[in-house]
Structure formats: C-alpha cells, structure tokens
Amino acid sequence: NRMYLVCPMNTSPHVDPLKSGHEVWEEFSHCFTPAVREVVEFAKKIPGFRVLSQHDQVSLLKAGTFEVLVVRFASLFDMKERTVTFLGGNKYSVDALRAMGSGDLLNSMSDFSEKLMNLGLSEEEMSLFTAVVLVSADRSGIENVNSVEALQETLIRALRSLITRNHPNESAVFTKLLLKLPDLRSLNNMHSEQLLAFKVH
C-alpha cells in the first residue's frame, strides 16, 4: 500500500510512509508554490493582463495555471530516453513511474511535451504561446468575457505574426500550436480527476 506522488513538481515520487496525509500534502505544496508564483509573475507581464478586473485575473490563473505549468515544464519529459526529470533534479524512467502507479495522465503529458518540443519554438514564441494558453475567454467564472476575448485575440494575432515571420516555410506550425489548446484542456481535466482521486485516497 505504499503511496507515490508521480507528479514531477515534487522533488521525488517517493513518499515517507511515516508521514501523515496532511504532512505529505504540505510538503508537496511547498514544491509547487514557487512555480505557481512564477506563473502569476508571468501573467502580470502579459501586456493588458493587469487591465482586466482582479476577479478575471484570478479566474484565468485558477483555471489555467496547470496548463501553463505543463507548457513551461515540457522539457522535463525526455521521450528519447523515456525519462521524467522531477524538480528535485532526479530522473525517473517512464516505466518506473508506471510501476509506481502513474497512469494515462503522465503518458498523455509525455506525448504532449514531445510534440510541443518537436516544434522547436524559441523562448519568445513559447512565452507568447503560454500567454495565449492563459488568456482564454471561455474559462469558467469570467465576468467580463469581452475584455478577455479582446486580449485573447490580440495575443493570438501576435503569436500568428511571430510564428509566420520565424517559420516562413512551415505554415502548419501556427495551426499545430492552436490545436495544442484543446489537448491542454483535456490534460487539465484528467489532472482534476486525479486530484479528486488523491483527495479521496
């Protein structure tokens, strides 16, 4: 009945069996909190984000932080070596993590990361794509949909312009990037289901 935390936001998947569930959660929280703060700092630098109402800023961040983290940490997944590097710096093989109970979510995250990394985006392109991921007008709880939609459209136009300029002979890159958005939603839903399972456990 050993428990493992196969999320790479941990320092390690191994959980001290002597620790209570609350202690395990606290430790995990210490691992992901700095990354979440970085997402907030990133959001604040998106031109136009701070003009949105505070309610909508919070709603976008609540709904999109996981997806932003998936994009930011795509490089943790190495599908050639079939390894995942945890934030503690240690690498674990996909097979070992599967034996620890990782399921479809980690496999799907690996697939997503591999395809995203294969696009060979620059840091600037990746940042703009991440901004597009975060500013989505169809997130739940948005008060001023029109404002979020306007910012979203501006960001998508900027992304298209940047990608077209940088990849003149690869017309499909922009389309492929937009198709990553529903993939991220799907990963987000799977992650929410796993959180529920974790809490029930």
Binding site: S29, F32, T33, V36, R37, V40, E41, K44, Q54, Q57, V58, L61, K62, A63, T65, F66, H191, S192, E193, L195, L196, K199
Partner: peptide, 27 residues
Amino acid sequence: FNDPASNLGLEDIIRKALIGNLEERQE
C-alpha cells in the same frame, strides 16, 4: 472537483501574489 484550484490552495497563492503586488504599488 469543480474547483480544483481552490482545493489545492492555488487560489490563496494566486491572490496573495496578485494582491500583494497591488499593496506594494499603493505604497
């Protein structure tokens, strides 16, 4: 389940990071 961000404590972290900055700007 409907609000995993709140369950994780994410909302607190997000609000502190956003509002903390607002307070700094007011100072």
